[in-house]
Design a protein around this nucleic acid. Structure first.
Lengths: 255, 255
DNA sequence: TACCGCGTTCGAACTACGGGAACAACACTT
DNA sequence: AAGTGTTGTTCCCGTAGTTCGAACGCGGTA
């Protein structure tokens, strides 16, 4: 799968989704606003919007169009059909209850980490993560756990495509350093996140691997830096986490 | 908003979403399969699919294309931005804990009921409902509660568009009968569902109204018919439910 | 080895997409 | 009350872009 865009895309479909993206970015907009934003004629935008609205994908109220919940239907369908979901959900709930922290399950898709399920512990930190959120893999514990267990050429592809953008001052932005960390993760079996994605938040992440050893996802536990440190971060949480991912891998093999 | 399709839709956008629909309906498919299903040329489908894949909306594995989690991102974004969501979520959780039953929040969109949030009680029944699920309003308690508090002309529009399809033998399929029931719901303040959507399942649903009195959504409690009967169904649950919707309406007015 | 089945590429034809201008409906100013 | 600015909407025309069919490459299988 080379990323050469050799074929000619269907431009009309692209503009349709660009309109949808504008509506998402702006929390809804009018015809003229969309047209200006995208440099299209009002009539063009109007026809697109009406087409999408007729399909139920958009909602109109006065001079404002918004994205509808059809996307929720498609999205939840996709998530529930994912082979990991049924197996991982109870374990994530369990971990959240045991640790009292925020627990996430993340999968890899198109080289990005996607949060497909999260559970609240009693003392969960509030971050901007939410179901469906896409995050560059190098920026967080679950992502690095996945990255450490993908084929080298795949890692190369991903990193050359997306680069190593910083999220906080602690984000790993050097390719060499990342490779070292990934090596450490492979030896250790799990990954840390020391304020690399959110200031004041630490996390531990462990991969979920298929029978070939390739990561198909990861589970992470995140919490405030002052609570997740010393042996809690280095021993207790990893033990719980590896127990969970191990069970998930076994259940996955027999489903 | 008449349902006259006076304008000419963008057919290319329609085919794109028809392809997506096929992929959803068939849990993934190949190029040829999609082309046969829709009566399109393979080359056409191929170009569409590659366009969507390049945007990250589809995933390819071998000769099989699937919908990606991008739709989850759009969908959850839409749900979380909905004015009801933040207010209703804690109340739904609370109701589930109090009643030990399955609790849903449903909103109306394009004349259909959409499940935007559900919480499990300890003895929750398992139905086919899931977040994002769209259901005709006349088929369940929350839907009828909404229908009973919409303007008459809106109700006419909706019923003439979708009809009164039966889900079980108890589903209301007669227009006159439905009107009587809706009248009863308005007097009583909440709606019942006696095995009208799922055999063996009863439910109570109460509307969430805006300041004009129009329903913008509803909350329902559902459980096995043998547990939800007599005073539990007729008194205790409605009391809890109306307490919750009342609080939601108040919080909604001040946000 | 020849045969399907698949996804993919290519070129040509004509459809239908996009643009611009004019229109209607409304709010706000003067 | 007339005027000026919005907005969304409709129309028609030209051509760019979509669609189709046929051909290609590549696996498997008989």
């Amino acid at each position: 799968m080379t990323s050469n865009s050799k074929h000619r895309p269907v431009e009309t479909v692209d503009t349709a989704f660009e309109i949808i993206d504008v509506l998402k970015r702006k929390d809804g907009a009018g015809i003229t606003e969309i047209a200006d934003e995208l440099g299209l004629a009002k009539s063009t935008v109007h026809r697109h919007v009406k087409t999408l609205e007729e399909r139920g994908l958009l909602l109109q109220e006065e001079h404002n169009y918004r994205i509808s919940t059809w996307f929720l239907d498609y999205g939840v369908y996709v998530r529930n059909r994912h082979p990991l979901f049924d197996v991982v959900k109870p374990k994530v709930d369990e971990l959240a209850a045991e640790t009292d922290e925020k627990v996430w399950c993340v999968i890899e898709e198109h080289g990005m980490g996607v949060h497909i399920y999260g559970a609240e512990g009693r003392h969960s930190v509030k971050t901007h993560a939410r179901i469906g959120k896409r995050t560059p893999l190098h920026q967080f514990a679950a992502g690095k756990a996945i990255l450490a267990h993908l084929p080298d050429e795949r890692v190369d592809e991903i990193l050359t495509e997306y680069g190593l953008a910083a999220k906080t001052s602690q984000t790993i932005t050097d390719r060499e350093e990342l490779n070292d960390r990934l090596e450490g993760i492979r030896e250790r079996g799990y990954a840390f996140n020391h304020e690399e994605s959110v200031r004041g938040v630490h996390a531990v992440g462990a991969p979920i691997r298929d029978q070939s050893g390739t990561a198909i996802g990861a589970i992470s536990v995140a919490g405030p830096a002052n609570r997740l440190r010393d042996t809690a971060l280095a021993e207790e949480l990893p033990t719980l986490l590896l127990g969970a991912t191990n069970e998930v891998e076994i259940n996955l093999a027999h489903s």
